[in-house]
Amino acid sequence: MDPLNRTWTPSFLLAGFAAPRTLRPLAFLGTLCIYVLTLAGNLFVIVLVRADAALSTPMYFFLSVLSFLELWYVSTTAPTLLHTWLHGRSPVPAAACFIQLYVFHSLGMTECYLLGVMALDRYLAICRPLHYHALMSRKVRFWLVGASWGAGFSAALVPAGLTASLPFCWKEVAHYFCDLAPLMRLACVDTGWHTQVYIVVIGMINICNLVLILGLYGGILRAVLKLPSAASRAKAFSTCSSHMTVVALFFGSAFVVYVGSAGSHAEGTDKRIALLYTILTPFLNPIIYTLRNKEVQEAVRRVTQRIRALLEGP
Rank of each mutant, 00 (worst) to 15 (best):
K226S: 11
Y289M: 12
A54E: 15
R272W: 14
P25N: 08
I287Y: 07
T269D: 07
Q196M: 12
Y35P: 02
T76K: 00
I273D: 03
H175Y: 13
V49F: 03
A266R: 06
P314D: 12
L32H: 00
K226Y: 01
F153K: 01
L4T: 11
P3E: 12
N206H: 14
Y277H: 14
V200G: 04
E298N: 11
I288A: 07
L48T: 06
G88Y: 10
R138N: 12
E312R: 13
G152W: 07
A78Y: 05
T31R: 01
P314F: 07
W149V: 15
V189H: 04
C188V: 09
V173W: 04
L124S: 01
R128G: 00
D270M: 10
V117E: 12
E295W: 02
R141N: 12
A248F: 14
A119R: 05
L114C: 08
Y102H: 09
P314S: 10
P129S: 06
V45H: 06
L114K: 03
A40M: 08
L4S: 11
A95P: 00
V224T: 14
R6D: 08
N209W: 08
V296R: 02
L32W: 11
R302I: 03
V92D: 06
L225T: 10
S232W: 05
A174S: 13
D179E: 11
I99G: 00
F283D: 11
R222T: 05
D2F: 11
K271F: 00
A156K: 02
A27V: 04
A187I: 05
V47G: 00
L13D: 05
L186M: 12
K294L: 13
R222N: 07
A254L: 09
R308W: 09
G203T: 08
H131S: 14
Y132W: 06
G41E: 08
S232V: 00
I307L: 15
D190T: 06
V224K: 03
I220Q: 05
P25L: 08
T57F: 01
E172C: 00
A119I: 06
K271H: 01
G260F: 15
R6G: 00
